[in-house]
Design a protein around this nucleic acid. Structure first.
Length: 142
DNA sequence: GGCTTCCATGAGT
DNA sequence: ACTCATGGAAGCC
């Protein structure tokens, strides 16, 4: 089931099936129902408050690589950033492949793909570069 | 030094 | 087969 979530940071939507969060979008989802009192909504409440809360259950990654990718991203602390190259080396992969895998992340924000920047510059963001800038600035303000 | 190609590289589609 | 949310090196002012 897909829910819309309105936050101080902007409109979001997520797919919560009652067991785990399968996807999260950084924009509103047409026709979705308003956010319920589920673990994802609670986590988003906390995040927008600057509070770190344990993650809600997330859908399993499809591949082993995505599992390692997720683990590496979750290791980046609030407000900190890493570069594509650093993490790619850490996972034994190529920077470009790493970047593309990030773009395919179905759970932005929950899995903090916005904390990865290019060696020179900010890099890209599939949900819109404005989101990435806003999120980084938001996290740094705490 | 700063700017512009150029290409190795690997995961996803 | 082709597409990338890169990085680093090489060439040129």
């Amino acid at each position: 089931m897909i829910y819309n979530y309105t936050s101080s940071l902007g409109l979001m939507a997520y797919d919560w099936d009652g067991q785990s969060c399968r996807r999260l979008w950084l924009d509103s989802h047409p026709g979705a129902r308003p956010s319920a009192d589920d673990p994802v909504g609670c986590w988003l409440d906390a995040y927008c408050d600057g509070r770190r809360l344990a993650l809600p259950p997330l859908a399993k990654p499809h591949t082993a690589f995505q599992a390692r990718l997720r683990k590496a991203l979750l290791a980046i602390p609030w407000g900190e950033t890493c570069t594509y190259g650093e993490l790619a080396r850490q996972l034994g992969t190529a920077p470009r492949a790493f970047g593309q895998a990030l773009g395919a992340n179905p759970l932005p924000l929950l899995i903090p793909c916005h904390r990865v920047v290019a060696a020179n510059g900010i890099g890209g963001f599939s949900c819109g570069i404005e989101w990435k800038k806003a999120l980084l600035e938001f996290e740094r303000s705490f």
